[in-house]
């Protein structure tokens, strides 16, 4: 495996977790969208959904450890019928809760009040908005996606999200619209801020730029265009040892919809579970054993270490 060889060459192998600061929970793969870059391959037909027992086991982990950041992802997390319960319990325990939202979900029947619920529970929202121009976004995410996203952002701004640095946080996520790398995060943030304000009167806190991972739908796109090898080669050539320090797997642990533990959401999607010597599910969770675990890696990990690096919080280097 070339990623392991590369880590060895830079004295970074085995790659170890540093500390579990975040419990990242994927509550289900169902989504109202079928974005072309989605590593989950989420969509309306996906039925994988975290059940109440597993949700309770997640809450037990938070109650029994010093992990204070809960990062909820999907699919569209809002489709999970136990999402509100999970959030309420986590907030009662004093956890900071982050929800990864696709923004368009609030246009779906029965979802209109979610922004209000998020406000009332002091949730940090991390919202996917691949670009500040409708034509580009709709090409990746589907017809009317941009229009619905802008409508949602205005609603969130009106509720106090993304308006001032000390208030409710609303972060946006940019990813390239094809087989190329993301721009410099700082500069793109400035451009998003200027253009979203000028064109739509919308504001936000931070922009995270992510590299498209060569898994899921994006991988299929690369294969269809006969470009997988070329993209992988570019990721390999762009390996940046400085990015290794900040990659997300070193600071979080990921929970699949069925309670299986993973080093990150990407590993979850390719079925790469934790190394055999560690507890494998939420019910066996042990912070002491898992905190400095050896991380399971494969060649898709080049996606997180290329250039400025890519993490759940954007650039890693």
């Amino acid at each position: 495996m070339e990623f392991i060889e590369t880590l060895k060459k830079h004295n970074c192998y085995p790659l170890r977790a540093s500390k579990i600061e975040t419990l990242q929970v994927n509550v289900g793969y169902r989504c109202n969208m079928t974005c072309k870059h989605c590593h989950v391959e989420a969509g309306p037909s996906r039925s994988e959904m975290m059940d109440l027992d597993t949700i309770k086991a997640v809450i037990d982990i938070l109650a029994g450890s010093d992990i204070r950041l809960l990062d909820i992802t999907g699919g569209a997390p809002e489709f999970n019928p136990h999402l509100r319960f999970l959030i309420e319990e986590a907030r009662t325990l004093g956890c900071h809760v982050m929800v990864r939202s696709n923004l368009t979900i609030y246009s779906e029947d029965g979802m209109e009040d979610m922004p209000l619920f998020y406000r009332d529970h002091g949730i940090e929202l991390v919202a996917s908005l691949p670009y500040y121009q409708g034509e580009v976004v709709d090409r990746v995410r589907g017809e009317h996606a941009f229009e619905k996203s802008i409508r949602a952002l205005r609603t969130l701004n009106n509720l106090g999200f993304g308006v001032d640095p000390g208030g409710l946080k609303l972060d946006l996520v940019h990813n390239p619209q094809g087989m190329f790398f993301p721009p410099c995060q700082g500069r793109m943030e400035e451009e998003y801020r200027r253009e979203l304000d000028r064109r739509y009167g919308v504001s936000f806190n931070n922009l995270f730029t992510l590299t498209n991972m060569p898994i899921g739908r994006f991988r299929k796109f690369l294969v269809e265009r006969n470009q997988l090898d070329r993209y992988m080669e570019r990721l390999r050539k762009s390996f940046n040892p400085a990015a290794v320090e900040g990659i997300m797997c070193r600071y979080l642990i990921n929970v699949g919809w069925d309670g299986t533990l993973y080093d990150c959401d990407f590993n979850q999607m390719i079925g790469l579970s934790l190394n055999d010597k560690y507890p494998g599910t939420v019910r066996e969770f042990d912070t002491g054993i898992l905190a400095e675990r050896e991380i399971a890696v494969d060649d898709h990990c080049f996606g997180c270490t290329a250039g400025q690096g890519s993490s759940c919080q954007g650039a890693a280097a």
Binding site: P176, C184, R187
Partner: peptide, 12 residues
């Protein structure tokens, strides 16, 4: 063209 996209630019 690829470099322009990687600098965050678009077709405009």
């Amino acid at each position: 063209t690829k470099s322009c996209l990687e600098e965050g630019m678009n077709l405009d």
